[in-house]
Every structure is written in C-alpha cells, then in structure tokens.
Design a protein around this nucleic acid. Structure first.
Lengths: 336, 336
DNA sequence: CTGCGGTCTGGCAGCGCTGTCCAAAATCCG
DNA sequence: CGGATTTTGGACAGCGCTGCCAGACCGCAG
C-alpha cells in the first residue's frame, strides 16, 4: 500500500539506469560484477520485490503456470499440489492451483479464459482432465505448453509423466497368487478413469500368465469410493465358493471391503486377503494395515513441472517406479 | 499468444471509446443500458478476457488474496482450500494457495514479499499461522486486511472465524459420561496447537462438572499423528484399572488408538470406547466407524473469505457450529 | 590508424488496463 | 426559455516493468 519501492527508486540509489536494475533482476549478462553487486545490495536494503503484474504485462512471459485438477481425493490432490509446487518454486515460477469441474459444459472455454486472464505460460493437467480430448485439442491448437500427469489415453502424445498401472496391478496379483490364492476378485473403478481399466488389464494378464482363466463374475464395478468397496465386498461374500482374496482398484474401496469383512466377521487376512492401490494415508490408518501399491504421486507432479519448465527434458515421457507395499491384509490362502 | 483481443479492439467493434468498455467490465454506473448491452455482446463474441496483470498494475486493487497454510493433513488443507476458493470465486477474487513453512526464520519477510509481488488485497491465515505474533504484528503494521481461521490466541483480535473447541470437547466427554464411563483418558495434541489445549480444557471442565476429579495420569501427550495415538493407547492399556474410554484430540490419533486396541484384542466399543475429533475422511473409513466431532472446516474457510471480502460483515468474529457424530466406537461402559 | 566485434549501459516506447478530468448531450427547474 | 444539474462518454496520463535499439568503450587484427 504505502511506499512500496519500485525499480526506479532502486536505480536512483544505486546510481544506475533503471534498465540496468532490470538486467540484474533477470540475471541477464552484460552487467559488470561491480554494478551487479551494488544493485543487489540496494535491492536487499530496500527489500525491493519486482511487481509480478508489471513483469507479466511488459514481458513475453508471466512465470505463472496452473495446475488443473478435478479429483475428490484430498490425499491425491494434496500430494500433486505439493510436488508441482516444489518444482515450480525452485524454477522461479508461480503455481496457480485450479480445481476444475471436468463435466461443466463450458470447461474448455473456462480453462482458456483462465489462460488469457493470467497470461499463463503453461498448464499441468492431472486425471481425469488428462483424458479430455476437447481440452487437449484446444491446447494443442493454441500451442500452449502443457504436461499431463498419468494420462490414460494417447499416452505418447506430448509431455507426460506416468507410472505403469498394468505392471503394478500384475505385481499385486502375482503377490496374491504366490500366497496360494486362486479365486481372486477384482473391484474396478469407474469407467471414466482409464487407470482403472489398466489395473483390470494387469489383473487379468497376470491371472492368465499363471494359467488361471479370467472369470468376469469376479469383477465387480465400483466407483473408487469407500461405500462402493463395501458393497462390492458384500456381494462377493455371497459367492460360493467364496473368493479368498479381493484386489480393489484403490485404497478407499479396499478400506470399504475391509470394513465389510470386519462386519461380516470374516478374519483378514486369515480367511480373506484384501489389497488396495495408491498407498494413501488410509492404507496405514486402517486395521490391519493395507497391502497396496505405492503410487509416486508427489514425484509424478514434481517431474511433470520439471518436464514442462526446466527445458532439460531428455524424453517427452517420463515413467516413474511404483512399489508393492506388503502389509498385513494379505496372507496365505486358507486351506481347503 | 496469438491474437488475444484487447479492450481497444472490443471498443473499436462496439463503436465506443475503450474507457467505456472498461466501465462496462467494472460494472460502473453512468453507462446507458443500450451501450452496456452492445459492449457485452462484443465481449462475448470475441471471447474477450481482461488481462489480470494490466488491471492490477493500473488499478488500486489486484482482486487477489492468498490462503496461507502449514498443515500436514491433506484432509484439512483440501477442505480449507475448497471453502475459501468457493467464496473468493463467487466474489470475483482469485485465490493463491500458499504452503508456508511457519518455522522458517524468514517466514514473515517471505510472506510480505509475496504480498508485494502479487499486490495482494488480503490474506487468509489458517492454523498454526494464526498463532504467530510476529506475522500478526507485521500485517497490522502494514494495514493489510486479513482473516484468521480458528485462531487459538487473541481470539478477539481482528477478523476471525472459529468454532468452540472447549464446548465441543465437553460435549464428547459428556457423551462418554452418559454412557457410564468414569475413567476416561485424553490423548492431547502438540503444545504448539492452541486447539489442543482448548480440547483438554473442555474435557477437564466437563469431568469436574460431573464431580469427577481430573487425573493427570489419564492425559497422555501425542502429536496429532496416527503413530502417537497408538503409542498413547498402548501406554493406557497398561494402567490398572484400565480406562474404559479414550478421547483423542483428533481423528488420526483416535485411529491409532483403535488399531492398537485391535492389535491387543480389546473389543471396541464393548471393552473400550474411543472417540476422535475432526470428522475427517478417516473417521468413516476405519472400522468400526469413529465417534467424533464434525468440525465445519470448509464452512470456516468459506466464512473467512466472506468476512474479509464481502464487506457486509456484521461482527468481526464468526463462530460456527460443530456437531457430535455418534458412530460405532463408543458404547456403554463395561460392567464391573 | 581504421574497422570490427564484443561488453556494458542508457533511452524510450509500450504492454492493457484504471483513475482523473473534462466536454457534450440530455434532463430538469423556475 | 436560460441556466443548473445529471448522465454519458472521450482524452490522456501513467501503473512498473521488459524489449529493442543505440551509443560508449574496449581490445585486437589488418
């Protein structure tokens, strides 16, 4: 409000032109060491901060990018945010966090409006916004830089950071198989999330690789919510013979299945093994702690920001490692 | 990048001066209905969006505020964000979400730098940043508008939205008392969070109101983490006679205590009642679902943004209602 | 000595708006 | 019907920077 110093005041005190101060601030070359030092001193002394608005208006870049998300999971959003934020901060960019309603009819124009208003230099997309063809096309057409985090569709298009959902699902299925389970159910996520189809595919591949026929009756549709996991589990408990293991497409559904098992007095893991996917906070908070796949959510977001902004990208797509976290909800298949 | 329309182009097409377009955009008076309509048509047709940077630079306000937080709980941050975001959006403000390290030595100057750089119109503070005297003083001195969400200290200073932690803790303690519990343990949060002292005070008050002496041995220190809740519960299990109920200062610690009970084969709620505080996602995901206090986190943030920006505040402090959520981890005290 | 390329610095326009001031047109009043 | 007042809209400066261009100065080769 009051006496916010400007670049001109800095220049006056340092005894140089204000253009030179601008050079120092932007780390341009052609400034003598001596001058640079003097300017920096005055900047520190006045506690001067360049106006972001002025730089944006005058320059070609705004040093602002936005992270777009439309995900109901606090855990996921929190970690995506913090990873992206960290890398943006390191590179001198500001990150705008933008929840977006991916089903809104004006979603694409609204995003474009945001880009215009804020003069954004780029966009980081997270699922399910990574899967919106109209959005992708609009961005391509506008030649606006963007990265996708964990895209399910057109995985080799543009910049993206991913993990291998298929391989991860195979791994967890193999873990169950090795424990002796033969009748393993799968609770899938919503159709709109490509990741859930990938996880289903991995489950099926691994089963078949072990010579076990895929049984569609053992696949129950869920929607990634706790409640849907419980409902799926209760349906499964009615099957005869009962499956000895449930692999849920995410941790929320696995927690729902676990609660349903407790309710039905089915001992986990003695009578029933349960596995999740994500390694969210939930996985360690339920009892027994959940066997699951650790998704490198934070790292995915960090790498995404890096890919788009740092300029030293080797390949347009980066794949990060997941990790099987064997905890206490999976155990040997019950005899007989 | 390419042909972004500007206010001048709009004015040319609409056949008015660009100042008139500015008037329409800012909803100023002294523009005839007819002119306004015509301008709005052109704006819609060109898909024109005013440059935020230019408005900020030219005008007295930036229509930007920041939400500052330093909280490890994804649940809490997510809901604070979404509440504040919603109200800011409705009022035409942009919200910058800023994680802050409240222990960093340069925290205050860093916040001030952000304010300068972004020309912020105001700040929304969430715990524990609400409790930093240096920050509060610096903001007061700079006459920068701000609101605090759930301040623990100097509760009647400036704008704030709160809930009554003391009353809520009394309520949950009363619930336990009414179930017949007499030996009720309390797991407290870290000293740095004033809310945890308030909850302890409520617990103690209610006990004494029922003629039960406060027993310091039944108060165990935790740090709001799942692990500390488990450790506290295990310590409590060793007491003779064993307490019949545990009231944990937040849901994470309650979940930890619950897991510890499962592990020690103590039936909940038959042999031991457990209650939490927050009604986070966790509360419904554990088994049995947790009795807890619903904190109106989202509403607190919404009201905070409203208080600071809408200008129709009646009182500087707003108190919102909590709600006792009785679920399945609390039951009648065991006989004998 | 001249010319050339490189380093350092300054001058100035202008980014796209808002704030302020002023002029013209419309309206009102006695 | 003249003058005061209100409504409407234009002119223009300027917010605090960056981009571009020009100019001063240097060293070095021809």
């Amino acid at each position: 409000m009051a006496g916010r110093p400007t670049i001109k005041e800095v220049s006056k005190i340092a005894g140089v032109s204000f253009k030179t101060v601008s050079r120092v601030l932007n780390n341009e070359k052609h400034v003598s060491e001596e001058t640079r030092r003097r300017v920096e001193e005055v900047v520190a002394q006045l506690n001067f901060r360049p106006s972001h608005a002025a730089r944006t208006l005058a320059g070609r870049r705004s040093f602002q990018v936005a992270l777009l998300y439309d995900n109901p999971s606090p855990y996921y959003v929190f970690h995506i945010q913090s990873g992206a934020m960290e890398r943006c901060h390191e590179l001198g960019y500001r990150l705008l966090m933008q929840p977006i309603d991916s089903n809104a009819p004006d979603m694409v124009p609204d995003v474009l409006a945001l880009v215009d208003e804020a003069h954004l230099d780029g966009l980081i997309l997270s699922p399910p916004l990574t899967e919106m063809p109209e959005l992708i096309e609009a961005l391509d057409k506008r030649k606006l830089p963007y990265v996708r985090i964990a895209p399910g569709l057109r995985k080799d298009h543009g910049l993206a950071t991913t993990m291998n959902d298929v391989a991860a699902a195979r791994e967890i299925t193999r873990h169950l198989l090795q424990l002796g389970h033969r009748k393993i159910a799968f609770v899938r996520g919503p159709e709109s999330h490509v990741s859930s189809a990938d996880r289903l595919a991995g489950y099926r591949q691994e089963l078949e690789a072990h010579g076990i026929a895929f049984d569609p009756a053992l696949v129950i549709a869920g929607d990634y919510s706790f409640a849907s996991g419980g409902a799926a589990a209760r349906a499964l408990f009615g099957h005869t013979p009962r499956p000895t293991a449930i692999f849920a497409g995410n941790d929320d559904m696995a927690a729902g299945a676990l609660a349903a098992a407790h309710e039905a007095d089915i001992a986990v893991p003695e009578a029933m093994s349960i596995a999740g996917f994500d390694d969210s906070d939930l996985a360690r908070a339920v009892w027994p702690p959940l066997t699951t796949i650790r998704q490198p959510v934070r790292e995915l977001a960090y790498a995404a920001a890096d890919l788009m902004l740092s300029g030293n990208a080797v390949t347009p797509q980066v794949m990060l490692e997941h990790e099987l976290m064997v905890r206490a909800t999976t155990g040997p298949a019950p005899k007989g």
